[in-house]
Design a protein around this nucleic acid. Sequence first.
DNA 1: TGAAAGACTTGACTGATTCAAGTAAAGACG
DNA 2: CGTCTTTACTTGAATCAGTCAAGTCTTTCA
Lengths: 152, 152
Amino acid sequence: MDHHDAEADFEQLLRAADLRVTRPRLAVLRAVRRHPHADTGSVLAAVRTEEPTVSHQAVYDVLGVLSDSGLVRRIQPAGSVARYELRVGDNHHHVVCRSCGTVADVDCAVGVRPCLDASDTHGFVVDEAEVTYWGLCPACATAPATATATEN
Amino acid sequence: MDHHDAEADFEQLLRAADLRVTRPRLAVLRAVRRHPHADTGSVLAAVRTEEPTVSHQAVYDVLGVLSDSGLVRRIQPAGSVARYELRVGDNHHHVVCRSCGTVADVDCAVGVRPCLDASDTHGFVVDEAEVTYWGLCPACATAPATATATEN
DNA sequence: TGAAAGACTTGACTGATTCAAGTAAAGACG
DNA sequence: CGTCTTTACTTGAATCAGTCAAGTCTTTCA
């Protein structure tokens, strides 16, 4: 994984989305790549290891525009703050640990767009079906409940 | 729907769950029945039309214990505050309007427990698959986006 | 009826997220 | 390459859902 190639990728990604290329945006993209499912606070911390002067507001703004542009995906399991990931457009889903809040990716077995056919959507125009699996992660399934959700 | 019968039902429900029967709890159950998918604030407001002295903390507490006991179900679509409903244990799902946040119930067409078979759950012990359909409600699909999510 | 456990009230507090005003940097164009 | 316009970022304050803590009232059960 060459550093400059990855940089170029993110830069292209931004330009293709008609977004200005800025240091905070590149840093956020790198942070999200390094920490899949990280919440805003973790992204901020990760960003500041490279760009110590980036403000917390900038991170909120950047995550907002990147989400709106579809460059990152925002998820928010019940009871959790917003989390972000780079995997986008591949219709994957998430398992969330009820005990510690850890999130992992899951490819649905049913097909490319599972469960997108609801019987009656009351006239809603549906464009996405999001599946969240709830349960216990390997650690919490065996150990007593202690941990609290923070990072992945 | 006779008033006293319904009261008796809720009372039984509470006792069956080993919960004390209190005015706030009955009022919350009635409020949630009257306002499916209402958030905590709306439940509080609805409760106070019958029991004006109930504190906001009590409503949080009651909704907490009722959720833990499985008497009500708590949902929280991304970007929304917690919402509550009485329909429980029937594995139904939700459509959420991207524009106004309105929530509606959906029975999944695939079967009783749709999508519960994920290909690889990374060792998680999964006990529930929650499906959230995203799209536009009839009103927002035709009209320009204006409304903001509040009540159902 | 009276005691013990549990629920409720009150009031303060936290923490994620947003708002607003001003400064700085990116991209376009000459 | 320098200037201009647009848009991003910084700073600092504010909001709001939800939680914590201490004390009082109720429910339940003996």
